[in-house]
Computed example of a mutant assay.
Amino acid sequence: MTDPIPVQVKRLAHGEGLELPHYATGGSAGMDVVSAEDIVLEPGMRHAVATGLAMAIPHGYEIQVRPRSGLALKHGVSVPNTPGTIDSDYRGELKIILINHGAEAFPIRRGERVAQLVVAPVTQAVWDEVGELDSTARGEGGFGSTGR
């Protein structure tokens, strides 16, 4: 395991009294983040859930927003743009886009864990336009071309 990356976090007024994102276990890759609001997600509904937090992610890193597996399995509640990306130059409130794919309304209470945050390094690319690409055994075989 590498050394932890320091991430500055600012608690907004509506985030007072809530836990900061934290790892549930020593081996956790993602930190649990909690809701700063009460909301009921009706079936098919999407909502950007407030966390009451803003942050300064170090340059060269991103924070990925991922669903909590228990919410997805038990209730059909997930992050529709998985993984969501928080860029290092964003300074607004962290909001978690959730969708209810389940058949029942799903209440979210203030302080309830709603997603996981993973700090990850970012590699930026430079395009090198060429006239031809090297060949591979797969070639242009697309969806399903490698079998099951």
Rank of each mutant, 00 (worst) to 15 (best):
I57M: 02
D32L: 10
T85I: 13
I63R: 02
R91S: 13
Y90C: 12
I57T: 01
P83Y: 05
L73C: 14
G60Y: 00
E93K: 09
Y61E: 05
G30P: 08
I97W: 09
V65C: 10
G27N: 09
R91L: 11
T51D: 00
H59F: 11
S88T: 10
S28F: 08
A54F: 00
G60K: 00
P67D: 01
V79Q: 05
V40G: 06
G17S: 07
V65H: 02
L20K: 06
S78R: 12
V33A: 03
I39S: 09
G27K: 05
P83A: 09
Q64V: 10
D38P: 10
K74H: 13
I57V: 03
G30A: 13
L94N: 10
L41F: 10
S78C: 12
V79A: 04
V33M: 03
D89C: 08
H59N: 13
L18C: 07
T51A: 04
V34S: 12
L20Q: 05
S78G: 11
A56I: 11
R66G: 06
H22N: 14
E42I: 06
K74T: 10
E37W: 04
T51L: 01
S88V: 05
I97M: 15
M31K: 14
V65Y: 02
P83G: 09
R46M: 15
R91H: 13
H22I: 11
L53A: 00
I39N: 09
N81G: 07
R66E: 02
V65W: 01
I97T: 15
N81L: 07
H59M: 09
R91E: 13
M45S: 14
V65K: 03
Q64N: 11
A50S: 15
G60H: 00
S28Q: 05
S69N: 01
R91M: 08
E62G: 07
I96L: 08
D38V: 09
G52N: 01
A72E: 04
H59Q: 15
H47C: 10
D89A: 08
A72Q: 08
I97G: 09
L20N: 06
D32E: 15
D38S: 13
T82V: 15
L53D: 02
M45L: 12
L71E: 03
E37M: 12
H75M: 05
Y61K: 08
V49P: 02
A56V: 12
E93G: 08
G52I: 04
I96V: 15
L41K: 03
K74M: 11
H47V: 11
V79T: 07
G26Y: 06
L18H: 02
S78K: 07
P80A: 08
G76W: 08
P83R: 07
D89F: 06
R66C: 05
S78Q: 12
I39G: 07
H59R: 12
L94M: 15
L53M: 00
H75R: 10
L41C: 04
G92W: 05
G26R: 08
G52V: 00
K95C: 14
T51S: 03
V40F: 11
E19G: 14
I86S: 03
K95M: 14
I96A: 03
G52E: 01
A24M: 11
A72H: 04
E16A: 15
S78I: 14
P43K: 00
A56H: 11
G52P: 03
G30E: 02
L18Q: 01
A50N: 11
P80D: 02
I57W: 00
G17K: 01
S35Q: 06
M55D: 02
H47A: 15
